[in-house]
Nucleic acid binder design. Structure first.
Lengths: 188, 188
DNA sequence: TCGTGGGTATACTGATCGGTGAACTAGACC
DNA sequence: GGTCTAGTTCACCGATCAGTATACCCACGA
């Protein structure tokens, strides 16, 4: 459903520049002229490729979500079934290094209050996906009460993600606590 | 240091309207004309009271922070020393009802990337304050390793705050888990 | 009674916003 | 050679942005 068009080289450069700027400075604060300038492309080309700023925002969120899911799946694939439960947390270790300004989806929700906005939908669905993933992983690892555990892990995940700007290693703290929760859950 | 001026009735109306609009629609997306209109005040009055949009943003963040601290202090005062550790979490029960769009400080940070911006500073200091508060409360309750516990509680707090938009009672899950952590910490 | 300070009303500035029109250019494929 | 496509150049649109200017109004206190 996503293979409708391969996207031109110019289109990709636009998307990269838009990603950096939207995430780094905020969606509303960044104008299309600035994106065009940073991607070495004409504003006309930007509109030929994406149609409107709103659609470019949607493309930005979609791309971010796909990259994130890919990283999580790779981390899961590289872990043992029991460690896989913590994979989304471990993935943050890598992710946060190139994304030091908090969660792009939460930040986007802050700027896109309209629940009907496509980007708003994608951002909320991303969290739903993560919750379901935690539940599946917990079930596969043989945890008791996987739903409860998944909710706890989601909270730890979002908490660690959102507090990364503080001079505190909240990610390690979250992973350690998550590890204990998983272990306790497996031992009934 | 905050009692320099009592603020006129018009000033208070402006601050209330600005709070609703900034929090509800985003800071950058809301213009001064809209705020003036919603507070039934002339734009001239707005500028006479606050000087610039930036200073109004700072006033908005400051007011929010003071209200939040007040609520937390009241919740602490109404709790037993052992339950006081969970007071900031419990305070969210009340707070979230009138603030359903996530954490105002995180949302503000998303839109104000400049670390030198006064509102940026206040927003980050707010979390530092909360961390210190958790540490003090944990120490007062006789918890072992209060620093570690405080970090965990902060993560749970932020996680619950940020996931409130999901159709999940993450706040109750966070409080229950926090309760267990505190109990385990007191029993060494 | 006379200022004076807080407020209103309205018009305005220059800059920037998202978005468009039209003509032109370079390369790829037939 | 001819056509088609993606991209460029650049001028332009109306709306909105933050912020200012000028003049007026009115209640309150000395």
């Amino acid at each position: 459903m996503s293979e409708t068009k391969p996207m031109s080289a110019a289109g990709q450069r636009i998307l990269v520049a838009a990603g950096d700027l939207f995430y780094g400075r905020g969606i509303t604060a960044v104008g299309v002229d600035l994106i065009a300038e940073h991607s070495g492309v004409t504003k006309r080309t930007l509109y030929n490729q994406f149609g409107s700023k709103d659609q470019l925002v949607v493309a930005y969120i979609e791309e971010r979500e796909q990259r994130w899911r890919l990283l999580v799946r790779e981390t899961i694939a590289a872990a043992s079934p029991m460690d896989a439960v913590l994979a989304p947390l471990e993935a943050l270790r890598t992710w946060n290094q190139s994304n030091p300004r908090g969660c792009a989806f939460i930040n986007a929700l802050a700027e896109l209050p309209d629940p009907a906005h496509p980007a708003h939908l994608i951002a909320t669905q991303q969290k739903q996906w993560l919750l379901t993933l935690f539940t599946d992983l917990a079930t596969a690892a043989g945890c008791s009460a996987p739903d409860t555990l998944a909710t706890q892990l989601l909270v730890l995940h979002e908490g660690a993600l959102v507090t990364q700007q503080l001079p505190l290693d909240t990610l390690s703290a979250s992973i350690e606590l998550a590890h204990e929760l998983v272990r306790a859950s497996i031992l009934h």
